[in-house]
Design a protein around this nucleic acid. Structure first.
Lengths: 225, 225
DNA sequence: TTGCGCTTCAAACGTATGTTTCAAACAGAC
DNA sequence: GTCTGTTTGAAACATACGTTTGAAGCGCAA
């Protein structure tokens, strides 16, 4: 019991509620009542709601970035002085996410959804926090992507990375929402491993698309520089 | 002057603020002070904040869906009884978005960002509204995608469409956010036409990725069903 | 001018939020 | 058992929100 139990219960409840409702739409009262702790406990243990948000991210991002750095180390060791391929790099990322020890069975989809929210909801304090804490790992990933796609121009690569991030963050972040809209409710599997196994080839193919396809069809009103 | 001026000023201000801050984070007081109208004007002219959100979407989505339906009509007429290709379908969508008459020069990126928010922020009332008003056009687009990718299984297609939506909505919606994080601040062009010209080939390539790539690299801890 | 819709305005309403307060309960060392 | 520092508890705080109110202002037909 004692301190850490309250802290963890708050973090668990906050993580889940943030993931399913967003940050602003989740009140401290929802969190504390779900966690069965007193309202004042959040401000006592974390200081503020924003600090709680940071703590929620830090709890899974810190071990994740450690695992990811290790995976990159391994990959680069295996590759010797050759740069890692795009497929290898993406899989290293994916496996690090999937294989991370999870608290619950839906831990990883909460994880992805929170990451998506971090980008989507324009919380300045969160972006600053994430960039400061985990910017190094992120930059390393970007550097590896660059070495894995030497054929792309800097501008092409920049945009295609945005597309990749978008497809990933968005897919993982719209847990139930999209499944409502695409009424094609075929029996959709929800395992994150399976989604990742479908997503990675999609991303790799997009990333390596031929520039030739850049040309719009004849008669198009869209001009390319 | 008179009525419609106030209504339009509210819509303009709301559109811009919603796009840059999200729905819950934008208060009626921000909107009315930006629009230089009285606070009560929103409830007088629209009835509620939710109804204002609907009106903002209806103002650009109604003409857009009309243009899009027309573009699909044209495309299907050109194709005769053949189904339209994936490239043609995606370009029809893109051109409809790009060529829509814009109120301001950043109109289309606001447009895209709002669409992204509509999916991302879990506003039940908005999803219901959009599905009810524009579900028909959306279903038609989905049908054309299906006919353009007969080689894909239903499940594969379902997920790849999610990836496409994600890459699109996310890219367009993270106007400044991502450009902060990817510090690679190469001189990035902002023209939506140019982004679209890069996005469509990315999407088409991802959509048509080989299933063979579905297999993770040897030694992977990720298993595929 | 008078009267009548429609629109604007300042002010208030009730509610919900994040945060603070301070006393009570608790745990462990002496 | 008593003291001390830490944690919990119920209540209140100030503020911000969406919404409502009722009077004032307006354009325009009679």
């Amino acid at each position: 019991m004692a301190q850490s139990d309250t802290v963890d219960r708050i973090l668990d409840a906050a993580e889940e509620l943030f993931a399913e409702r967003g940050f602003s739409e989740t009140s401290l009262r929802m969190i504390t009542s779900k966690a069965k702790v007193n309202l004042a406990a959040v401000n006592y243990h974390f200081g503020s709601k924003n600090a709680l948000i940071h703590a929620v991210f830090a709890r899974f991002l810190t071990p994740f970035s450690a695992i990811l750095e290790q995976a990159f180390d391994d990959l680069e060791a295996r590759c010797g002085d050759q740069p890692a391929s795009l497929n290898q790099t993406l899989w290293a990322l994916t496996e690090s996410a999937v294989c991370m020890p999870q608290r619950t069975e839906k831990g990883i989809s909460i994880f992805m959804r929170l990451l998506g929210l971090a980008y989507t909801q324009s919380q300045g304090h969160l972006r600053m926090f994430l960039e400061q804490e985990y910017g190094h790992t992120f930059s390393r990933f970007m550097r590896m992507l660059k070495e894995a796609t030497p054929q792309l121009s800097a501008v092409d690569r920049y945009w295609r990375i945005q597309f990749m991030l978008g497809a990933t963050a968005f897919t993982m972040s719209s847990s139930d929402a999209l499944q409502d809209i695409l009424q094609n409710k075929i029996g959709v599997e929800t395992s994150v491993q399976e989604i990742a196994a479908r997503l990675v080839p999609f991303l790799a193919a997009g990333m390596q698309a031929e520039d030739a396809m850049l040309t719009p069809p004849p008669g198009s009103k869209v001009s390319v520089a």
